[in-house]
């Protein structure tokens, strides 16, 4: 047999070897837990020890960041408002980032909402809403610009309080992903209660496919699917958690400007970003701002690589141009607006 005649056979051998042996496919391992008040899933092409280390990190963050636990670092800082306290480097960095987003969103995201969130959501989700007087009083103690943070030293005015609940999940997801990358993991999905961050590609190859919650439907029902690599996907809206009193629904996202649940013409906001913390802060802020002011802000952010899916109460969806071809709308009652 001459070498020319043997070429097709050699090619066949190569194809068969690739298909039959499927070399180097490390299996995906996963861990689940209930942390930070939500369900956590870490799925990664990694050793079990790496996943265990990631879960230990998340448990540690859960202990230090809860605003609702007096023994957490944030809880202790809130209990000592009026006096200077020293934060751990990690919590100081988180607060610094939160204050940055507060500034960039003109206060639509505010990490000092604790006096108000305690009022609206402190005793569960079924109680009489607070009186306008109580809201006005709590609002006096809210204001990101009055936080004094100097390195690790924090000074809150008396009766002020931090609530980092709006970004703690995003921060946790970022930290978990950072650890996984540091350990050399090149394919993973971290899901902290719907805050999703992916590394690389999904099992079997190709972009990860992330479902986006339909804000009008029960949890788990999709508006559409977005395809991502190395991105965070975060959604926010008043659709799930709300205070219910005498038939009236009060959403859980409080407008720092009024002290009352945000009355937005947006029903759901999804942010795609590198950092899930940034996505968390932005999703909340854009919801509070409403469509017109949100769109003004997103134009700038799109140039920095962020992308958005804004779902209006009128069922119009504003989609960032960079998501064209990556987002597939499934729910028929909505219409896509991509002509910005």
């Amino acid at each position: 047999m001459t070498w020319k005649r043997s070429l097709p056979i050699l090619a066949l051998i190569l194809i068969a070897a690739v298909l039959f042996l499927r070399p180097g496919e490390r299996p995906f391992e996963e861990r689940r837990a209930f942390l930070m008040g939500t369900a956590v899933l870490v799925r990664a092409q990694a050793d079990e020890a790496v996943l265990d280390e990631t879960m230990a990190l998340l448990r540690d963050l859960d202990r230090s960041l809860s605003a609702h636990s007096e023994s957490s670092e944030i809880g202790r800082a809130n209990g000592k408002s009026g006096t200077e306290v020293s934060l751990s480097p990690r919590t100081a960095r988180l607060l610094e980032r939160a204050l940055l987003w507060a500034e960039r969103t003109g206060g639509a995201f505010d990490p000092t909402l604790r006096p108000l969130t305690r009022l609206w959501l402190g005793d569960g989700l079924e109680h009489e809403p607070p009186s306008p007087e109580a809201v006005a009083e709590a609002l006096r103690h809210v204001g990101w610009s009055r936080v004094r943070l100097d390195g690790k030293k924090l000074l809150l005015e008396p009766a002020m309080g931090l609530d980092l609940g709006g970004i703690a999940k995003g921060y946790g997801a970022d930290e978990a992903v950072s650890l996984l990358r540091h350990k050399g993991v090149s394919s993973a999905l971290v899901d902290l209660g719907g805050n999703i961050v992916v590394i690389g590609e999904r099992p079997g190859g190709g972009p990860w496919r992330i479902g986006i919650q339909d804000p009008r439907k029960p949890r788990g029902e999709r508006l559409g699917i977005v395809e991502v690599r190395d991105r965070s996907v975060v959604s926010s809206g008043n659709y799930e958690r709300f205070l219910l009193w005498q038939g009236e629904r009060y959403g859980h996202i409080v407008d720092p400007a009024t002290g009352f649940p945000a009355r937005s013409d947006l029903e759901g906001v999804t942010v795609l970003s590198e950092s899930s913390l940034d996505g968390d802060a932005l999703a909340t802020a854009l919801f509070v701002l409403g469509r017109e002011r949100a769109l003004a802000l997103t134009e700038d952010l799109e140039r920095d690589g962020y992308a958005f899916i804004l779902v209006g109460a009128d069922r119009r969806i504003d989609l960032s141009p960079s998501l064209t071809g990556l987002f597939r709308l499934e729910a028929e009652e909505y219409r896509l607006e991509t002509g910005r």
Binding site: R32, F34, G37, T38, A39, L41, L189, D191, G193, G194, N195, I196, V198, R202, W208, R209, I210, G211, I212, Q213, R219, G220, R222, I225, V233, V234, S235, E240, T270, E330
Partner: peptide, 30 residues
């Protein structure tokens, strides 16, 4: 891949099976 979650009771129900359908997702925001 579809899931239902009860956060207060810390219970998750998930359907499992290989899925190559176009509408299958790896995760879902909420």
């Amino acid at each position: 891949g579809e899931t239902a979650l009860c956060l207060p009771n810390r219970i998750e129900l998930r359907l499992e099976g290989k899925d190559d359908r176009e509408e299958a997702v790896d995760g879902q925001t909420y």
